[in-house]
Design a protein around this nucleic acid. Structure first.
Lengths: 140, 140, 140, 140
DNA sequence: GTGGTCTAGACCACC
DNA sequence: GTGGTCTAGACCACG
């Protein structure tokens, strides 16, 4: 389980952590029973304040995606994948929907947007990295 | 020039106003020399505090998209469209890029994402409205 | 008496009018007894709202630089030159002082500032026009 | 980082703050990565309302000179010095240019203006203080 | 603790 | 009538 955090992103740090874990669950890179890195380890690894990591874990527990075994660590809960897949899909739909509405409103064509989507999909990026320039230009 | 504000959106009100004006400029619905509605008028129309509207107008001025003639009103600046088109496109590219990376990371296929994009484009929404359910489900 | 008004200047229109008349008095281009253009003529000539021109004339009268002969027009007052020269000099001193303090604070040398002054003086501009690029660059 | 605000200046308070920071960046007294004083601290120190300070910081962010880490503070951005130096120089050039045009128009000689510049440079003032009388008179 | 947003209301300057 | 500035205070989100 490798997490990356982009401090300069406009997405809050704790949300970045939560989402990466949720995506990993949705994509089966994390399965029920798997153990998450300890707060301290993840904090060291990502250079993020331990309080922030703890908040992410707490939120995930509230969502019912993980459970804590005191003194043992934090584990993926049963049924997490089903919940995650639904939620992740909804989130992605909403974000694409918003972006598309904006693009339309600014006069962009459907074809143009499709090109951007394809170029984005072709690109492999660490989560929350900035979009590379060629994505923007190749669709220009 | 008709603006709508969605108080329930997670996007800040003043950003909603700024963006709608920027999109309008990018799409030539507002041209250099056109006058924006007065702060008070827009405030009345949208039920938003005048200070908030003024904040939007000030930001647009800092971006060089509008200029103020004191006592007269706020006007679209020369060259605003060029600046806007670039900036709006970049913003849309970034948002789609992020959403696609998230979707990929959660195990969604390119075809699936394309369907969402098409469904979104087909839908006519007021800016900053929530995505309608059928967009999510029809692509499900 | 030829006046020019730059709408895009950050200096208020009525101040631009007042100052140009004051400078003209200080430099003896306008002498006691000379008649100013009528409010209406100046308004037509400069495309400025008549109220604004009238305000300028009123201000100048309050300063004791002009006097109004009802139905006849507005005339330069006796002793106007003495008053103007002092006031104009003071104004110029203050503006240069402020600009120099700013330049120093931003790390500019005295020599650099002197070059800018010389370049500015060499240039003949209509009042309140933007500084031409070569002034900025030749001192770079 | 010591800031002073002159309430009696005709320059808006928030602009005074912005400019002092910009000059500090241009002169390398503030470097990329440095943290600005917190909004509340600067507010206490200068006796200015926190909203006003926040407005300055926001504007600087729009200009790309600083970036915000939510909950952490505001930091000088990479490349800020280059942007600042250019902008500060341009501002100073414009102000001197305008003042010189005014002076010329009022009949002042180049030598006279140079004397004022030298006297101003020799004087050490806190930002936005009024020009001391001797600057005006020594050049008289 | 940090900054961000929004409201409310006062006062000023310009046209 | 127009926009600009500043204050005051509340509430939220982030770390």
């Amino acid at each position: 389980m490798q997490l990356t955090v982009n401090i300069r992103s406009n997405v809050a740090v704790y949300v970045q952590i939560e989402n990466q874990i949720r995506f990993a669950i949705a994509a089966c890179r994390l399965k029920p029973g798997d153990r998450l890195p300890s707060v301290r380890d993840l904090s060291d690894q990502t250079q993020v304040n331990p309080n922030t990591v703890a908040k992410s874990y707490r939120d995930l527990e509230v969502m019912g995606l993980v459970y804590t075994r005191h003194g043992m660590g934090v584990y993926i809960a049963d049924g997490a994948q089903t919940k995650c897949k639904k939620a992740c899909r909804k989130m992605t739909v909403e974000r694409i929907f918003e972006a598309v509405q904006e693009g339309k409103s600014a006069g962009m064509s459907k074809a143009e947007l499709a090109v951007i989507l394809n170029a984005s999909y072709a690109h492999d990026a660490t989560p929350y990295a900035e979009a590379p320039k060629n994505v923007a230009t190749m669709a220009g």
